[in-house]
Design a binder for these strands. Sequence first.
DNA 1: TATGAATGAGGGTTCATTCAT
DNA 2: TATGAATGAACCCTCATTCAT
Lengths: 196, 196, 196, 196
Amino acid sequence: MVRTVGSRGPKTMEAIRTAGLRLIREHGYEAITLRQLGQEVGIQPGSMYNYIQSKQELLFILIRDHMVALSAEVATALEGAIDPLDRLRRFIRFHVSYHIRRTDEVFIGGSELRSLEGENRTAILAMRREYERLLVAILEDGMAAGQFKRTDPPVTAYAILAMLTGVCTWYNPAGRMGEEELIRLHQDMILGGVLV
Amino acid sequence: MVRTVGSRGPKTMEAIRTAGLRLIREHGYEAITLRQLGQEVGIQPGSMYNYIQSKQELLFILIRDHMVALSAEVATALEGAIDPLDRLRRFIRFHVSYHIRRTDEVFIGGSELRSLEGENRTAILAMRREYERLLVAILEDGMAAGQFKRTDPPVTAYAILAMLTGVCTWYNPAGRMGEEELIRLHQDMILGGVLV
Amino acid sequence: MVRTVGSRGPKTMEAIRTAGLRLIREHGYEAITLRQLGQEVGIQPGSMYNYIQSKQELLFILIRDHMVALSAEVATALEGAIDPLDRLRRFIRFHVSYHIRRTDEVFIGGSELRSLEGENRTAILAMRREYERLLVAILEDGMAAGQFKRTDPPVTAYAILAMLTGVCTWYNPAGRMGEEELIRLHQDMILGGVLV
Amino acid sequence: MVRTVGSRGPKTMEAIRTAGLRLIREHGYEAITLRQLGQEVGIQPGSMYNYIQSKQELLFILIRDHMVALSAEVATALEGAIDPLDRLRRFIRFHVSYHIRRTDEVFIGGSELRSLEGENRTAILAMRREYERLLVAILEDGMAAGQFKRTDPPVTAYAILAMLTGVCTWYNPAGRMGEEELIRLHQDMILGGVLV
DNA sequence: TATGAATGAGGGTTCATTCAT
DNA sequence: TATGAATGAACCCTCATTCAT
């Protein structure tokens, strides 16, 4: 759709990233072709190789950059907070906020993991585990402090992450629910459940 | 790997389904080839066309049959229950149980929706909406009865479904947590949250 | 269209011939499939092999039978005629008449010759040459008798045959010109040309 | 056979056309494969798609270009001639001459029409009708002028065209009859018939 | 005789990738 | 940097043919 014809230099790489994110999100990594991508960007397929080494590398870059940003931003979001309950609230706020801001990256980062090969996959999985560990640690701390019910922390973390990450698949920013309300709803659900 | 050599007739169709589910789950619909599938089943790729009309149709059949089963079984699971709280507990139990029993179908049913074309996609989306409506209705009833907190029912339903459906991506039946415990954990989380 | 479902025995062979003629004429030998043919006849493709040895053999049979009939009938048509002019008139009458009665055979006999392999092709070509020789002989006799202009007999024969055979590609029996008139027109053209 | 190794750019397209004409003429459109064609041209089958959109389009291009040339050249051939008899002589001369110069195009243009799909076929048929109309008009004019016998002009035109077009199937330029003699023979046959 | 399932070869076409210009 | 032409592998799918039942 958006076709930056004749884009040159650094702008081209940016155009490749943007178009790549959108196309892969929409059709999946295996389903898209470098021809499609080139057309979207406004260059010939062969020219793509001035910017990327391979289709696989493009996927890796997109996911890795997203994971790097996620790690950096979550650190900022939790900065200074010590109380487990406070940290959990902040974690939820950050995660939801990030996931509706960068829907494409997040979605791809989950669904296209299986298309990553060898070391690429290993590297990303390590970063994911690190991120998950943050939540597990919060839960453990909260349980130790007697604030949270005693459960299996990793499993509870997975359940929570599944719920929080889900927003990137169905949340519509133009819909009737605003970001703030969405965050509250998730904080309430996770902290207190549905019961009155 | 498992090669049902010389499988004939109806057995072959069943072998195609089983191998198809596993392969698509593992590599994705776009990534697998009918050669792979044929090899797994123990027949030539062309012979597949005695059972399916196209690769696309195979995907559709796999997802559709899963949705049909899901609809039928959830009805049984909720049968006779009237109290919204009871219905919610049963819904969670059923959903979790089904999702760890039929991991492949469930995973594919979510991740490969985008590979369905035209009417195939429309048909499946309709069935999904119908299923989601069940949970929305339970939430609405419970709120009306004053049992559940007042929230946006569809959004809450999406959040809950995301959490429950997540089990198919990470739950390991051979791990230290049994099915019953997993169900309880989810019932507790959804009903009462993490707070003490 | 006409589907003789469950046809048995000798009727089946006849159905194969008829359907074969129509389909090959319409789409060409290479373009049709035994599946199409089977469907038209009302049997499975495999069952065809109870009647024919191969697709190639079917083509051969269809063309050969047509050539045999052509040879037999032209002999009858010329029987008793001695005068070259009389023979030529009869030849034209017969050729036109046969070619609008058995359009499919005739058309296939010309256009699908190149699809005949090895000996099959040789055999048919021999029969064709024999048939052409008839006309060449008539022309030679007529020239010797001073009735026809002196020209190259084989070339003239080819030219005449091209004109006469053409009717099977464009003549419409339901159109405004009847068979008798069509025959006269060709007799007149060939004998006297267009000039007054 | 002739392999223009390493042919680049426009030369390749020309090589595809030439080889295409020869192969299709020899084996028929349905019977040839892009692998064969590629080998003849000296490129991989897939590379063909830098020049054509599909096998079907190649056929269309070959036939269309021939029809365009035919139309253009016949106009030149008839230019300035008014007398119907003169026009008819010129038409015969041109048609025969063109048909023995471009045997492959002409043969394909007739025999592979049935392999053209949808609009492609419609377009070519329209061009053919236009060409045939030229001859019909000449005949009508000549009859009106009292020069030609009164007959059904379209049918007579078909008969003449069948004879004239036939040369492309049997004429051998290396044989004992030269082009000029061939033209004369057809002019004489059509104008005056075989009778003395 | 007829069927249904299978084979094995191959057909048109696509695509990531390369490279001379 | 960008292009256009090429490669080579593979993909989905079709088809003549075989054969146990």
